[in-house]
């Protein structure tokens, strides 16, 4: 058993060593397809994290007018709490909000000398998401209320972008994966033809189909895996550079939740590459390695 395993591995290594240009073609094809897959995957991951971090659909922020005194804010809080659809009301006093803002932007700008421009804020939660619009409409008409933000619009926009990215990305990735599959398949097919003599001799002496085909399948897995490793490195490097550039342009992006963890990319893309490479090679070997 171990001897046959050594034989299969040595055949795989021989083939990998002898057909250098074919390996380069197959690995780079797998790499390009997996870079695109990885990039789209990372974008989707980020968008999903943004969507998750937004207030839930049945939560809204009620900003009061700046001139409204604290007593009237507290009175309004009680009034809202008494509404039947409302689950809870949390007051965020303007002083607390300003302290938080000052801390948040401390690294970029010093806000301590400025007067507090923020109003008091109520965070209102409803029992059910569908109750939100009517509560928001009632509060919007209240004379002390300046603005009601229920974030539904933002959430919907993020989700719409996520949907678009998902569909565009999946279509693009599917097409690229298909062409990568065909290219790896072709690379393995060419390797099979290049090793026709070995295949023929193995078949004549009575090697099993599995023994004859396995080196080609392993070769496809190595090609896909190497493509995946390269792709993971390039995706992470590209994401890092892009993220630094965007943060310099728009510092507020720093508040967004982090993207896909590096371990996921480093583990996922090579694994996926190996699986796809192995699948293509299995397909080619099944078709072109015969013992007749």
């Amino acid at each position: 058993m171990l001897d046959r395993l050594f034989f299969i591995l040595s055949e795989t290594l021989t083939s990998l060593r002898r057909h250098g240009m074919l390996q380069v073609a197959a690995v780079s094809t797998a790499c390009v397809a997996l870079i695109l897959l990885g990039s789209v995957g990372m974008m989707l991951y980020k968008l999903d994290a943004i969507a998750q971090s937004l207030p839930r659909q049945f939560e809204m922020e009620v900003f009061l007018k700046p001139e409204v005194p604290r007593e009237r804010t507290l009175a309004l809080q009680k009034q809202v709490e008494a509404m039947p659809a409302v689950a809870s009301v949390q007051l965020v006093p303007r002083e607390q909000a300003w302290e938080e803002e000052k801390k948040r932007y401390a690294s970029e700008v010093n806000l301590s000398d400025l007067p507090n421009p923020l109003p008091d804020k109520l965070i209102v939660r409803t029992d059910q998401p569908e109750q939100l619009p009517q509560v928001a409409a009632r509060l919007q008409n209240h004379p002390d209320v300046d603005e009601v933000l229920d974030q539904r619009g933002t959430l919907e926009r993020v989700l719409a972008v996520a949907r678009l990215v998902r569909w565009l990305g999946l279509s693009l990735v599917s097409m690229l994966l298909l062409s990568a599959l065909v290219l790896i398949y072709n690379a393995v097919r060419l390797t099979i033809f290049a090793r026709q003599l070995e295949v023929r001799i193995m078949a004549l002496v009575g090697a099993t189909l599995r023994t004859i085909r396995m080196p080609f399948i392993l070769e496809g897995m190595v090609q896909g895996g190497l493509g995946g490793v390269l792709a993971a490195g390039l995706v992470l490097m590209g994401a890092g550079l892009l993220s630094d550039y965007m943060l310099r342009l728009w510092p507020f992006l720093n508040d967004l939740p982090p993207g896909a963890p590096a371990t996921l990319v480093l583990g996922g893309l090579p694994t996926l590459g190996m699986l796809l490479g192995g699948l293509c090679a299995w397909w080619a070997a099944r078709r072109f390695v015969r013992i007749g």
């Binding site: 058993m1 001897d3 046959r4 034989f7 070995e198 001799i201 193995m202 002496v205 009575g206």
Partner: peptide
């Protein structure tokens, strides 16, 4: 097999069937 010696050519067949 042109890149294998006589010895290796014969051994190749045996190794392929698990010797």
């Amino acid at each position: 097999l042109p890149r294998k010696t006589v010895w290796e050519n014969i051994a190749y067949g045996l190794r392929a069937i698990g010797y």
